[in-house]
Nucleic acid binder design. Structure first.
Length: 269
DNA sequence: GGTAATGTTAGACT
DNA sequence: TAGTCTAACATTAC
């Protein structure tokens, strides 16, 4: 699994159903490379005897408010991260657990990240973090007009802008392909060639797909065979017309699309 | 054992 | 200045 917005929405639900409101008695960091801008010792001190008060999501980031004022935990899941809540005394610590919060109720919440691309850090507030990282509006939250205006000021390939976290936050390689398939746009279509109407359609597709996927915790393939995600492989066939999918590179990332349903306009990058 | 997979970012380029 | 592009990072499966 590659945690993009819908997957992180699933982690948020998971946290709300497990560790939320629990009080931390101890914090363990098994690999300090998972920490950003804070030492293991400072993190442990900051978390000791605080409870997880609330949680929210922005893009691919999960923010957890602590009962101590102006103190939020920030989780980013890279491409292999997730959370695991378990009974500390009787359950084995998950493999690749990098940061573990032990609660007074005997349970633990592990930040698990196999490949070390994710990060755990803290911030005084989500807004401070979002500003500092220059993240764009959340891809599920953003309204049509703002979406259109933000994309209209861009050049280059539509997929590059759609997956650029400072334009809109939350869309990665997999959902980028899914959205462009549903919107029937070639991934390399130049943004400058798209009309306002095209961009409104792109917003509609973006919102619809992310909403359905988020409601299902990122398990879009299992909902319907009509989604692109389950077909996204070298020998995969287009779920709409059956044409074998093409593979190209956009932004150094493997991109799948259907040449028939997402034709070149002659104005691709 | 080389390559591909992924998200972010530093640094180069325009 | 600011948007765009490229390469590198980490780890594992094939």
């Amino acid at each position: 699994m590659m945690p993009e917005l819908p997957d992180v929405a699933g982690f948020l639900s998971y946290l709300n159903a497990t560790g939320l409101h629990q009080t931390i008695c101890r914090t363990t960091v098994t690999d300090k490379r998972a920490l950003e801008d804070i030492s293991a010792r400072a993190l442990a001190i900051r978390l000791k005897q605080t409870a997880l008060k609330s949680a929210r999501r922005h893009g691919k980031y999960l923010f957890v408010e602590l009962t101590r004022a102006d103190n939020w935990l920030v989780f980013h899941f890279g491409m292999t991260g997730h959370l695991a809540y378990y009974k500390a005394a009787s359950t084995k610590q998950p493999e690749h657990a990098r940061v573990i919060l032990f609660f007074e109720n005997g349970y633990a919440l592990a930040y698990v990240c196999q490949r070390m691309l994710g990060r755990v850090t803290t911030t005084p507030s989500p807004d401070e973090f979002i500003t500092r990282k220059a993240l764009g509006p959340d891809a599920l939250d953003i309204g049509q007009e703002l979406f259109v205006s933000r994309l209209r000021s861009r050049r280059g390939a539509v997929k590059s802008a759609l997956t650029n976290q400072s334009v809109v936050a939350g869309i990665g390689n997999i959902y980028g392909d899914e959205i462009l398939f549903q919107a029937q746009l070639h991934p390399k279509t130049k943004l400058t060639t798209l009309s306002r109407s095209d961009l409104r359609d792109l917003h509609t597709a973006t919102h619809q797909i992310l909403q359905v996927a988020a409601d299902n915790g990122g398990q879009i393939e299992e909902i319907s065979d009509q989604y692109f995600a389950g077909h996204r492989e070298d020998s995969g066939a287009c779920p709409r017309c059956g044409t074998q999918l093409s593979q190209i590179k956009v932004n150094n990332r493997t991109t799948y699309f259907c040449e028939n349903c997402q034709p070149k306009t002659g104005e691709t990058t």
